[in-house]
């Protein structure tokens, strides 16, 4: 079966960016899928199943990244990891305020 690459843009909502703890959450989630999953930032792609990869991207709060998945389970992977990227991954302080 042929898989067509899927991709979608997300704006990072975790206030402290993807530092070690949220990056671990992304890697743990991505590793459950068989498809290849990349996170692209400023034209460079990083392996979402690798902590080294995700950390190397140096992703900060408010950054726009593109999630790219290809292979078995890609639609589900896009949804699961996309939801994660678009959420405040860590428990943010109770009194987080909207402008």
């Amino acid at each position: 079966m042929e898989w067509i690459e899927m991709q979608k843009q997300f704006v990072i909502q975790n206030l402290l960016g993807l530092h070690v703890r949220p990056a671990k959450a992304v890697v743990a989630s991505a590793s459950q899928f068989n498809c290849t999953i990349q996170i692209e930032k400023e034209g460079v792609q990083f392996n979402a199943k690798s902590l080294v990869g995700v950390l190397s991207a140096g992703i900060k709060f408010g950054d726009t990244v593109t999630l790219i998945a290809e292979g078995e389970g890609e639609a589900e992977a896009m949804k699961t990891i996309g939801d994660l990227l678009a959420s405040p991954i860590e428990e943010n302080p109770a009194k987080k305020v909207q402008p």
């Binding site: 080294v52 950390l55 140096g58």
Partner: peptide, 16 residues
């Protein structure tokens, strides 16, 4: 290789 790649990122949260 990896150590030098990570050390180039100027991020205080990079505890590794």
């Amino acid at each position: 290789d990896i150590a030098s790649r990570l050390s180039r990122l100027d991020d205080p949260y990079l505890q590794l």
